[in-house]
Amino acid sequence: MSHSSAEIDFCTQSCQHGIRLDGRACEDFRPLELELGLIAQASGSARLHLGSTDVIVGVKAEVGAPLREHPDCGRLQATVEMSSCASPEYEGRGGELWGLQLAQALEASLVPEHPEKGGGGLDLRSLSIIPGKAVWLLYVDALVLNDGGGVLCVCVCVALAALSNTRVCVCVFTMGGGAGEGDAAEPEIELEDDEEGEGGRPLQGVAEVPLIVSLGQVDNAVVVDPTCLEEQCAASVMHIAANARGEVCGVQQSGRQGVDPAALVALMERGAAAGSEVLASLHAYFKQAPQQGT
């Protein structure tokens, strides 16, 4: 969505005076509205509105082969699709490149770089079924239904919500009996019926996933969670990944005019503090939210 220069001027000036057009203070997030388990056919799903930004995520779990580099780790694949329903500019292959970029960031945020060592995201080791043969494959598919700014932050939030809502079946496997000697007996995987009515076991390490917070630098003011218009006013937008303990896990700069390295540390601290605060309230909500089966 593009805005006129007058709109951009107006917004820039109000940000300088510490006033945002939607009435927020500089460090406030937009109101957040979360819906869990709305896609019955997915293993986990969530929809999140952050202001006017609207994203649905469906998680599907399938049994598949592990990667050769990590034979005893499960896999996670994230995709982000910009739905044409958001804007006609995403028609056809319109939003493809941006979707790829977002998916890359989302995937990096959800899983640790070296899954065999664990730490810093979902514990993929717990998703192994038969080491080297079969693992759980998690597909995290995000669908952006409206872009009102801060899509990356929302994608991570809602993926987190969907993963906290995801249940994978408990597997029992038996070595195929009666196979000839010397043959590698093909193990058979059985998905155990869930008895507790919980639909399986929850994923491990959801609480470790960092959240990405965007900070816009509009002249000398810093605004948390910028809207579309504020993103356009900002000289630079910093995307800061922070975990629940307030540690910075990643950072990326975007924007038009670059960022002053001297201001960077203060920005990152602010982002990390905001991120851990939102994460804490999200996890508190996941705990008390009714657990839906799949």
């Binding site: 896609i39 056919q41 997915a42 799903s45 649905i56 469906g58 998680v59 599907k60 399938e62 995709t79 699709e81 739905s83 044409s84 028609e91 056809g92 597909y139 598919d141 669908l143």
Partner: peptide, 12 residues
């Protein structure tokens, strides 16, 4: 334009 979400079908 008709599009299906990746998670919409039984098998992804």
């Amino acid at each position: 334009e008709y599009a299906m979400a990746a998670f919409s079908t039984g098998e992804r």
